[in-house]
Amino acid sequence: MERRMKLAGFGGQGVMLVGKILGYAASDHNKYATFLPSYGTQQRGGTAMCTVVVSDEEVGSPVVGHPDTMIIFNQASMDAYEDQIQPGGWLFMNSNASNPPKRTDLNVVAVPIDDMARDMGNRKVSNLIMLGAFCKKTGLFTEEEIIHTMHHVLGGKEEMMELNEKAIRAGADFVAAQE
């Protein structure tokens, strides 16, 4: 099985970190993975985008034209990337910062990550709420697996780690409650 994903938002939303954690998690669980950041002559606050491929076999192309899964953090990214998603593909979106897609063939998972993060007392963890929602919905990694990886990637103050863990679980719970 191979999952070819793109993640996009604006700089500072933690888009790259979510992509990296997915790569680390794949590596931790003996899967193949590539994380390709899009670094160019880009401006501060501009669009941040990365491509992540997770596979049971050695990954061929780290560059993906039409992802099966897209994780969108803001409106600009929705406008830029909605059309690239494979027909019938998955779209995870931050419903606080983007309107729904124009396309009607996608499996949309809309999560109000900014509101949820604010309610938890720290807006910075909105990206991890999205990570939790993504893992729960796709089953790519279990909650426990992704939390384990998050700990060894981020490793820091205990307070912050507790909040990070809470954020991942909140994302997962949000998705579970909708089913």
Partner: peptide, 9 residues
Amino acid sequence: GCIGSLMEP
């Protein structure tokens, strides 16, 4: 440069 900036196990 693509291999340089790529991450992989």
